[in-house]
Simulated assay, not measured.
Amino acid sequence: MTIDPTAATSTLMSGTTTASAPKQEMDSEVFMALLVAQLRNQDPSSPMDTTEMMSQQTQLASMEKLTELSQISQEQFALSMRVAAMGLVGQQVSYTDSEGTLVTGVASSASFADAVPTIAVGDESIALDRIMSTAPFAG
């Protein structure tokens, strides 16, 4: 028996009084609500295929783990950028300014206020991805 997910969700949610925004992604909570609705409304003479149900649960678990791995990967990348920015402090760095001129100066500090860390070179705040080269500061 096939159930329309929209109808099943609205049927299940009709008894609640919370006024939350509709979910844009299918998570385990929505999946379980749809599964319960499907089991409640199935035709007893033609029950749900358990193999299909197990397959759907396996797919959901796999999707949750992939989402978790993606989040961990993003966090690791952000941490790597921060470590790289801190490693530039005290180094001589070169970058291209807005006019296309190569500028060289000593990185005095790093900031993590934006999505991409920035390096302070003199009075300028340079995004980490604009740094062209580095060299130890000779003093």
Rank of each mutant, 00 (worst) to 15 (best):
T17P: 02
E124F: 06
Q42R: 01
G87P: 13
S70D: 10
S20L: 04
L79D: 09
S80D: 08
S55A: 10
A115M: 07
V103S: 07
A61L: 14
T17H: 06
S20I: 01
F77M: 09
L35E: 00
S14N: 11
T17I: 05
Q91K: 12
I131H: 03
L66E: 06
S62M: 15
S80E: 12
S80W: 07
L79G: 10
T134S: 15
L35T: 00
E75A: 14
E124L: 12
S62L: 15
V89N: 14
V93Y: 12
S80G: 15
A8H: 01
T104I: 08
M1H: 02
S62R: 15
S109E: 14
Q74C: 05
S108W: 14
A107E: 15
Q57K: 08
P117D: 15
A110I: 07
S109R: 08
K65E: 11
Q57E: 07
Y95N: 09
D114R: 12
T101V: 06
V103D: 03
M26A: 05
Q91A: 14
V116E: 04
L128E: 03
T17Y: 07
A110K: 11
M48V: 02
T9S: 04
S55E: 02
Q38I: 00
S14D: 10
V116K: 07
S28Q: 07
A135H: 05
T67F: 07
R130F: 03
Q57H: 05
T101D: 04
S70G: 13
I72V: 12
M48E: 04
T2H: 04
E99V: 05
T134N: 10
E25I: 07
E75W: 09
A21I: 03
Q71E: 07
Q56W: 00
M63K: 14
S62G: 12
G122W: 13
G90K: 13
M81H: 09
E64L: 13
V36T: 01
F112T: 13
R82S: 10
T9H: 05
G139L: 07
D27S: 01
D129G: 02
A138F: 03
E68T: 14
E25F: 12
T58Y: 04
T96L: 02
S80M: 10
S46E: 05
S55D: 01
T96E: 02
P22E: 01
L66M: 12
G122S: 11
I72T: 08
A110M: 15
L34S: 00
S20Y: 06
I119H: 10
G139C: 04
G105P: 06
A19D: 06
G100L: 04
D114A: 15
F112H: 11
V103T: 13
K65P: 08
I119L: 11
Q42A: 02
M86I: 13
I72G: 05
G139S: 06
I131S: 11
I72H: 09
